[in-house]
């Protein structure tokens, strides 16, 4: 089914999960520093320390007993995002907006009782495999109009992979009708390749094939210029230098008002980015390691 020639071509170009783990994730990132990336609260502490652009932290709740007081302290905000510090795949994230002095979720009223229950569930580990967790309350990102030109719903984000503080590959993740607002590739989202030299989008990959436009609405993708490109790259490098981790996937969002902001960082960035870029990571990484 698979020619020897093709196998060899893949083996020399593609980074497989074994090699990613042995040669990059474990060799480049000291295990004791993994929590800096895995725990959103710790991650934001480092970001704030280095004054790196990211969503403003409104509050952190570590105990159920602190819910009421911390919640009271964030009431002057008009919108906020509630996240479990150790959640994965977007589970447990709650976006709340104030309308007529009443908190709403997706336009529907969301009572204080419901909010408190959700906060308690996060702390009791509902989204962290049963171990207790922390709640992060932070500024709500307003997606940049650039994203709406591609797809009007959800919050797309950029993923940039860096080795030794150098950006080597990136992709833009965009939701689809199928992915229900989520931008993850394996949840049905689109992975869009990026030309790192020019800062333009390339093809969109939907898990099966490549598209030049968004498959749901035919909006242009191929060749589209990414706004704030230089800032975005600089921000990723600044972030990578701030963390004692040398192989990283950095997630960046574009806010309507504030521009590029770091969302989170990942010590085990996925390998699907190679499919989005129609290009293997291995050849690039190998050439960098030789220098």
């Amino acid at each position: 089914m698979f020619g020897l020639f093709k196998r060899k071509a893949l083996a020399t170009n593609i980074l497989g999960i074994n090699e990613r783990n042995v040669t990059y994730v474990y060799a480049k990132n000291p295990k004791r520093h993994f929590p800096l990336a895995d725990d959103k609260v710790l991650c934001k502490e480092v970001l704030h320390q280095h004054q790196i652009a990211c969503a403003e932290t409104y509050g952190v709740i570590e105990r159920v007993g602190d819910i009421a007081s911390v919640w009271a302290s964030v009431q002057h905000h008009q919108a906020l995002a509630i996240k479990p510090a150790n959640g994965s795949g977007g589970g447990g994230i709650l976006i709340l907006k104030k309308e007529d002095n009443q908190w709403t979720k997706s336009g529907k009223p969301f009572s204080e009782y419901q909010i408190f229950a959700h906060l308690a569930q996060i702390i009791m580990g509902m989204y962290a495999f049963g171990s207790s967790d922390k709640v992060l309350i932070e500024q709500c990102i307003e997606p940049h109009p650039f994203f709406h030109e591609i797809y009007p719903v959800g919050v797309p984000d950029f993923r940039i992979i860096l080795l030794n503080d150098q950006p080597i590959m990136g992709m833009l993740r965009v939701p689809t009708d199928k992915s229900d607002g989520k931008a993850n590739l394996h949840q049905g989202g689109l992975g869009i390749g990026m030309d790192m030299a020019t800062g333009r989008l390339t093809h969109a990959y939907d898990g099966e094939q490549y598209h030049k436009t968004h498959p749901d609405n035919n909006n242009k993708i191929l060749g589209k210029k990414i706004p704030y490109w230089e800032t975005l790259l600089a921000l990723s490098i600044q972030t990578s230098k701030a963390f004692p981790l040398d192989y990283l996937g950095i997630d960046i969002v574009l806010d309507k008002t504030f521009g590029p902001m770091i969302m989170e960082i990942n010590v085990r960035p996925g390998l699907g980015i190679q499919l989005a870029n129609r290009k293997g990571l291995k050849a690039i990484l190998d050439s960098m390691e030789q220098v």
Binding site: L10, A11, I14, G16, I17, E19, V22, L275, K279, G280
Partner: peptide
């Protein structure tokens, strides 16, 4: 650090 057999399938497009 070799590629896993199923990865050849996953990245076949490349």
């Amino acid at each position: 650090i070799g590629m896993r057999v199923l990865e050849y399938q996953r990245f076949a497009l490349l």
